[in-house]
């Protein structure tokens, strides 16, 4: 009996009569993981963008009489060391965090697809060169790479998205390249070539479309990585610069004060980051399970 529980990537396997079927643990009770994750993510998006409309408080306003106020009715999530409203900052911080992560994922995805497709469909020497370059890049720890670039470019939303995208694309590139290489050997791609199909046609019609579900799944995982990466950078002080808020930045500024009792300064941003990453992972896992099911059929 083959053991396919440890399989991380969806791959085709012949469903012989004697093969035991296993179901991916894709449901929590009655709610599917991808549905739950999607709804959770939507909730976070609504919180960050619709929240400020329902709770119109300035995240930068300083309330000098309410420094480090604990959560109560006027400030539901308390205030920080400068007397700023944590709930308002959490909402605005959510906008920055989610938007930058989303852009970074998109940049990483696009760059990865392009790079991988070029390597996978191009001539052998180009593939070898591009993959060698990729290995070199991967040999440098991504955090080191980010810290290096973050120290030499001005930090704003655009540069942060680009910076994160820079470390995001190699995984997607490798995946794309492998898929493209595998697809080249498929009989239906050989057939299309025999009919006179060019590289672009094959990439568009036979490879990209087949990869789409896999790409979507990986994009969700990538998004989770980006949220974590951005939060990490911000925690190191290399993210969105004060006084503007981001979830990681809130954690950073609250860390010291939480030790002396202002727990709300790290509990709520921490929860937000946790929920966002959970949402993306649930979405990814659920979609992966769906994909597995489809392939297995």
């Amino acid at each position: 009996m083959t053991d396919d529980t440890t399989r991380a990537q969806p791959t085709m396997h012949p469903g012989g009569l004697f093969q035991r079927r296993r179901r991916w643990p894709a449901t929590f009770g009655r709610v599917r993981a991808d549905m739950g994750g999607g709804m959770l993510f939507l909730a976070l998006v609504l919180f960050s963008w619709i929240g400020p409309l329902l709770y119109p408080h300035d995240p930068l306003a300083i309330h000098t009489h309410h420094i480090l106020a604990a959560p109560r009715s006027r400030f539901p999530l308390g205030t920080d060391a400068l007397g700023r409203n944590v709930l308002a900052r959490l909402m605005r911080g959510g906008q920055a965090t989610l938007a930058i992560s989303l852009w970074a994922s998109a940049i990483g995805l696009l760059a990865g697809l392009l790079y991988g497709m070029t390597a996978g469909l191009g001539p052998g020497w180009l593939d070898r060169a591009l993959m060698r370059l990729l290995d070199t890049l991967l040999a440098i720890p991504s955090l080191v790479l980010m810290i290096f670039f973050a120290s030499i470019v001005p930090l704003n939303e655009t540069s942060l998205a680009l910076l994160l995208g820079l470390v995001a694309w190699p995984g997607i590139a490798r995946l794309t390249r492998n898929e493209a290489l595998a697809a080249r050997e498929r009989d239906y791609v050989r057939a299309a070539r025999q009919f006179g199909a060019g590289r672009l046609y094959i990439a568009r019609v036979h490879i990209l479309r087949a990869m789409l579900p896999l790409v979507i799944v990986n994009a969700t995982f990538l998004m989770a990585d980006m949220i974590l990466g951005l939060s990490g950078l911000s925690f190191l002080g290399l993210g969105i610069q004060p006084p503007h808020a981001s979830w990681g930045g809130l954690l950073n500024s609250g860390a010291g004060l939480a030790v002396i009792g202002s727990w709300w300064l790290i509990a709520f941003p921490g929860l937000a980051i946790f929920l966002a990453i959970l949402a993306m992972n649930m979405l990814g896992q659920g979609l992966l399970a769906r994909l597995e099911g489809e392939l297995r059929e």
């Binding site: 498929r186 009989d187 239906y188 050989r190 479309r209």
Partner: peptide, 13 residues
């Protein structure tokens, strides 16, 4: 060319 395995020779999508 007519391939040996017709299923492999057609894009399943």
């Amino acid at each position: 060319l007519v391939f040996q395995d017709p299923y492999e020779a057609m894009n399943p999508r």
